[in-house]
Computed example of a mutant assay.
Amino acid sequence: MADPSASAPTPSISELMGGMVMTICISLIFYGVTTAQAYVYYLNSKRDSPWIKTLVASVWIFETIHTAVVLRFLYYMVIISFGNPQSLALIDWSLGVMCVSEVLILALVEGFYIYRIWILSKRLIILTVPLVVLLIARLGFTLSTAVYGLLARSWDAFQHTFSSSFSVLMACSFSAVVDGLIAICMMILLRHKQTGFNSRTDNVLRWIMAYSVNTGAISMVVSIVIAITYSTMQDSLLFVGLVILTGKLYANSLLGMLNARALMRQKANKTDSGLVELPTFNNRTTSICSHPTETFQQKTQEGADEIIKSNTSGDEDQDSVDILSTGKAVESRGVHVRIEVQHGDV
């Protein structure tokens, strides 16, 4: 009688590791992008609060640790296990460290997104608590996957054990649900923030909505692809490379959003030529641009006087006060006036 094990041929090195090595190479490129974005962020982060700067530094540090462990894992699979199929079939300890560092990155990034939803929704608990519960469940299943992998000791046992398979599929499912819900909540809340009066602010909000939807959709698709490749490609470690890539996507989405926000803020605050800065009052800056005209608008001038009076009152409840909020120029005796409030964003 033929040996049953002989009917299942051993996968070749290219089948087993080809897709994983390619995705790891792509993830290393993303780490370079993350480092560049972190550098750009700190060049333009004067208005941000210290805790946001600490968040960015923490994400980059965990990304660096994650990348170093990924290189250790790749070295084990390609160099140490070269010509040794038995060693190649084993799960190295570096995989568990990778999962822990990735969980920390996911907790920071998605926790930040949920916090922004909490602020935008005016601290609506019924909206944010379910997101927190889903995020905790997702992180728990990711950590349990790492534990099952280290206990299984081999890739074959890991992929054919019910507990580990269930943990992987649940982690991917919760990941897709959380990413999709965060993107939808951000889109709805930002849409309600549109005023219809200030086209510059509305353009910024529309851009942030599009960015949130795109990044959430990409992360959700990657999670679904991980579940599919894990279930259908039993002779390939492509799903491992995609899991490694996931952490890079989250770090890049956070830094990309922060850097793009600063860029859009600069564009929104861009004025005509001839800008003259006046003394500041309570962190507020008054700017005057020369703009000759013969038009005089009495009502708009009264509104300007009101804002100038409030400028010295110490009221700091709003992030930006702009006389141009109606979309019309404020013109009086050849002078164009604009008032701005400069605060750190949430």
Rank of each mutant, 00 (worst) to 15 (best):
L28N: 05
A8I: 10
A2W: 03
A171D: 14
C289V: 15
F82Y: 13
V177D: 04
F30V: 04
H160P: 00
P279A: 09
F166C: 02
L104T: 00
L255D: 04
T34Q: 14
S199F: 07
I13Q: 08
I182D: 02
Y115I: 01
V222E: 11
A68D: 02
G314D: 15
N259T: 03
Y39D: 11
L124D: 15
A227Y: 06
G344L: 07
S223L: 01
L120M: 15
N44E: 07
W155D: 04
P50N: 06
D345E: 12
K309C: 08
L106H: 04
S231F: 06
V321E: 14
A146I: 03
V129W: 09
E102K: 10
P279M: 08
T215N: 15
L143Y: 09
K122L: 08
Q194N: 02
V240A: 12
V213R: 06
I224Q: 06
I114T: 11
P130C: 05
L16N: 06
I114N: 12
T10F: 05
A137G: 15
L249G: 07
P50F: 04
L263S: 09
I80T: 14
H192N: 10
V133C: 07
L324F: 11
T201P: 00
G18Y: 03
S253E: 02
L263G: 06
N44W: 09
I323M: 12
I228N: 03
I26P: 00
A262F: 07
L43I: 02
L169M: 12
S45V: 07
A251L: 04
Y211E: 14
P292W: 06
